[in-house]
Computed example of a mutant assay.
Amino acid sequence: MSTKMPARVVRLLTGLTLFGVSVALMVRADLGLASWDVLHQGLAARTRLPMGLLVNGVALLVLLLWIPLRQRPGVGTAANVALVGLALDATLALVPPVDPLAGRTGLLVAGILLNGLATALYLGARLGPGPRDGLMTGLAARGLPLGPVRTLIEVTVLAVGWLLGGAVGPGTLLYAVGIGPIVAWLVPRLTVPAPAADPTGVTAPCPA
C-alpha cells in the first residue's frame, strides 16, 4: 500500500466525504443518531440552520479547545472541519426521507457500516485526527483516563442534543455497540504503513 502523500490525501478526502454521507443516511433513517450528531441535529432544530453547517461549526469550536491542551492539528484535522458538513448537507439534499420501516432500517445499517469504513479511511491516512477525537486524546495526554473522559463527553453531548430535539433511538444504541468493532477491524487493513526506520534507528520521513 503506497505511503506517498497524494495517495494519503485521496484516502483522507474520500473518508471524510463518506463520513458526511453516512451521517446523512442515518439522519434519513430517523431511528436515532450517534451522540455528536444528536447534538448537531438538536442545534439544527433550534437554529433552523443546515445540519452540515453546524457539524462544521461545532468542529471548529472543539478545535479551539485544543489550544490549552497544546494539541497540534494536521491536514486531516482542517479537512475534517471543512468537508464533513458539506458532504452531509449535499447528501441530505439528494436523498429524500424514507417512510417504510424496512427502508429506514436499511439506511441505518448502511449508514453505520459506511461510517465505519469512512472512519478507518481517514484515520488510516495518518494526516491528523478529527477535532473531537483530538479533544479526547488531548485530555488523555494531560493525565485524564481516556475511557471515562470519552464516556463523559459522549454522554454529555448526547444529553444536550436530546434536550435540544436531536433524534435518540435504537440507531443510537446500534451505532454505539457496532461502530467500535467495525472500525477496529477495518483500521489495520486500511492504514497506510508507517515509514520504515533507517539502519541508524531513526524513522525515515514519509516520501512526498
Score class of each variant (00 low, 15 high):
207 P>G: 04
100 P>T: 15
182 I>P: 04
15 G>H: 03
13 L>P: 00
93 A>K: 08
74 G>T: 01
12 L>Y: 01
102 A>G: 01
121 L>A: 10
48 R>M: 11
186 L>E: 03
137 T>C: 05
111 G>V: 02
178 G>I: 02
46 R>A: 14
163 L>E: 10
164 L>P: 01
126 R>M: 13
20 G>F: 00
173 L>P: 07
68 P>Q: 13
106 G>Q: 00
85 G>K: 04
150 R>A: 08
114 L>G: 03
28 R>Y: 04
112 I>W: 06
32 G>H: 09
10 V>H: 03
51 M>V: 05
173 L>G: 11
38 V>A: 14
55 V>L: 03
20 G>Y: 02
59 A>R: 12
113 L>G: 11
23 V>P: 04
23 V>F: 10
81 V>D: 00
170 P>C: 13
5 M>S: 04
176 A>V: 09
114 L>P: 04
49 L>K: 12
175 Y>F: 15
194 A>G: 00
172 T>Y: 15
124 G>T: 00
36 W>D: 04
177 V>E: 07
6 P>G: 03
169 G>F: 06
123 L>P: 01
178 G>R: 12
19 F>Y: 05
159 A>H: 09
7 A>D: 13
67 I>W: 13
121 L>N: 12
202 V>K: 11
180 G>D: 04
97 P>D: 11
15 G>F: 09
149 V>C: 06
144 L>N: 09
164 L>T: 07
50 P>G: 06
54 L>A: 07
54 L>Y: 10
58 V>F: 01
139 L>E: 05
85 G>M: 04
146 L>E: 07
70 R>F: 08
26 M>W: 04
28 R>P: 02
189 R>F: 11
184 A>W: 14
124 G>S: 11
19 F>L: 05
187 V>G: 03
72 R>F: 07
16 L>A: 02
90 A>L: 14
187 V>C: 02
149 V>D: 01
98 V>Y: 10
139 L>C: 10
116 G>Q: 06
181 P>T: 14
206 C>Q: 10
119 T>M: 12
26 M>Y: 07
71 Q>V: 11
178 G>D: 02
70 R>K: 14
65 L>I: 00
194 A>V: 06
175 Y>N: 13
151 T>P: 02
27 V>R: 08
206 C>T: 13
205 P>I: 01
18 L>I: 00
28 R>H: 05
163 L>G: 08
45 A>Q: 11
76 G>N: 15
135 L>F: 12
110 A>I: 08
144 L>T: 04
147 G>I: 01
21 V>I: 03
205 P>Y: 10
111 G>E: 03
137 T>P: 02
36 W>E: 05
89 D>N: 08
133 D>T: 01
173 L>Y: 09
158 L>Y: 12
124 G>F: 13
158 L>S: 08
104 R>E: 03
69 L>M: 09
57 G>Y: 12
6 P>L: 06
3 T>N: 12
158 L>C: 02
44 A>Y: 09
192 V>F: 14
99 D>R: 14
65 L>F: 04
64 L>H: 07
142 R>H: 15
138 G>Q: 10
194 A>W: 14
88 L>T: 06
166 G>D: 07
32 G>K: 09
12 L>N: 03
194 A>T: 08
172 T>I: 13
140 A>E: 15
85 G>Q: 03
112 I>Y: 07
206 C>V: 08
160 V>P: 00
186 L>Q: 01
137 T>R: 15
67 I>Q: 08
